[in-house]
Write a protein that binds this DNA or RNA. Structure first.
Length: 317
DNA sequence: TCGTGTCAAGATCTT
DNA sequence: AAGATCTTGACACGA
């Protein structure tokens, strides 16, 4: 199997590696003139986009081909203060440059709207806000020149004291999505409510790829064996490369908290159960130390039996 | 400059 | 019914 590694949002190993800069609403509102408020957002956006391109260049230099964009690239994009602001038009050149760079270097990119974005809420206002947030993500990807290959990962949502009904609501709302969101949406199992089996069944029902989060599976399951689920999960990706999220538990806190780095033993254990299927896949490392965790995992795996290092962020096993 | 409380978003648990 | 907690990196403020 050939496995590529990537990381989330920001690079710690370089200067100016954060595309996450923002401003709090409270502070933004202290600026008297609305036009000046917008200028504050513009300056932050310009800085974020410059840092984002820098991060992609760093990734390219280190063979990192899997990357998740931050949702904060355009600060407060979905807040009332930014209503009507044509950020995609104003920053068309910068956004397209980022997209072009990623394509030129064969990067697989995605985004993960945060856990306030819910397609299965019974509250219409929550659905409306979620649609707005998804539209923002899709708008940024459109402006970068990406099609449906650039995925948006979300969770199923709340349980609302009835997962079956809540999953039905998800299915109904999914069908109503505009094409530039619907075609990009993929679903991940979470660490509290929806198990890998729940999400697999949902993904099969609506024909959507499933992201397996290995750590979430160990936090939230009903005794299923991951080796049994993996072939069906991988099958939801059809001809494209499956993607897996991987993190390790931070010692001394609740099991759900993410550690600085990824345990190579835990990752090897996953590779062992995936080995029967012998299908290539990508891994998004969700570690506090971001890109440093990619480098460290590669260094640790290099010493392990059966691992062949292909480049700085790819192995064969 | 450092430490720390706060933050746009919603569900869920606790009181 | 109201408030605390979860989670994240970064802001914002006071010492």
């Amino acid at each position: 199997m050939r496995i590529r590694f990537g990381y989330v949002a920001m690079a710690l190993n370089i200067m100016e590696g954060s595309p996450n800069k923002t401003v709090t609403v409270t502070n933004l509102l202290k600026i008297a003139a609305p036009a000046d408020r917008l200028n504050r957002l513009r300056r932050l956006t310009r800085e974020n986009l410059a840092n984002q391109l820098r991060v992609l260049k760093y990734n390219a230099a280190h063979d990192i081909h899997v990357f998740r964009f931050t949702s904060k690239l355009i600060p407060l994009a979905t807040h009332a203060e930014a209503t009507g602001w044509d950020y995609a038009g104003e920053f068309a050149a910068e956004l397209m440059e980022i997209g072009d760079f990623a394509r030129r270097h064969n990067m697989r990119v995605s985004a993960h709207p945060d856990h306030f974005t819910l397609l299965n809420s019974p509250d219409e206002k929550v659905i409306a806000a979620s649609l707005e947030d998804l539209a923002y993500h899709a708008r940024v990807f459109d402006a970068m020149g990406f099609g449906n290959e650039a995925k948006l990962v979300i969770h199923v949502g709340g349980a609302y004291k009835g997962k079956d009904k809540a999953m039905d609501r998800f299915k109904e709302n999914y069908q109503l999505l505009p094409e530039n969101i619907k075609g990009r949406l993929i679903i991940e199992n979470d660490d509290k409510s929806y198990t890998a089996r729940d999400v697999l069944e949902l993904c099969q029902a609506i024909t959507v790829p499933m992201v397996l989060d290995v750590h979430h599976h160990y936090c939230c399951n009903e005794g299923e064996n991951l080796a049994d689920l993996w072939p069906d999960i991988a099958a939801t990706w059809q001809d494209s490369l499956p993607k897996v999220h991987m993190s390790s538990t931070k010692e001394g806190t609740n099991v759900r908290a993410h550690a600085d780095y990824i345990s190579s033993d835990e990752f090897i254990a996953f590779m062992d159960l995936a080995k029967n299927l012998d299908r290539d896949f990508d891994v998004m490392l969700e570690a506090k130390q971001k890109d440093l965790a990619v480098h460290k995992l590669m260094a640790d795996l290099e010493k392990a039996a059966g691992v062949e290092v292909v480049d700085e962020a790819t192995i064969a096993y």
